[in-house]
């Protein structure tokens, strides 16, 4: 699967952009937190697309963001 690029995203409407990013992020997040992958992906999709693209290219920043989101989710559910 070819990497998602900013120009590919720019060609799509916002709704499609978020869907494209979600479809790419979900499997990566599922590897880290299979049970809450849908919730975490939904949380991260609210971040702006340039940061989401960066997270797709950099596993460390994705991992850091995912752990942050898990903490927020747990606090929210408490």
């Amino acid at each position: 699967q070819e990497p998602l690029t900013a120009s590919m995203l720019a060609a799509a409407p916002l709704k499609e952009q978020k869907q494209l990013l979600g479809e790419r992020l979900y499997p990566l997040i599922q590897m880290l937190h299979p049970v809450v992958a849908g919730k975490i992906t939904g949380m991260l999709l609210e971040i702006d697309n340039s940061e989401l693209l960066h997270m797709l290219e950099s596993p460390e920043s994705l991992h850091a963001k995912v752990e942050e989101a898990v903490a927020v989710l747990q606090a929210h559910q408490a």
Binding site: P27, T41, E46
Partner: peptide, 22 residues
Amino acid sequence: GTNVNWPPEFCPGVPWKGLQNI
């Protein structure tokens, strides 16, 4: 109050519902 619909869950192949929050 806690918004029980948050976060807008993402399901592969299903249009994501979180757009209205942006």
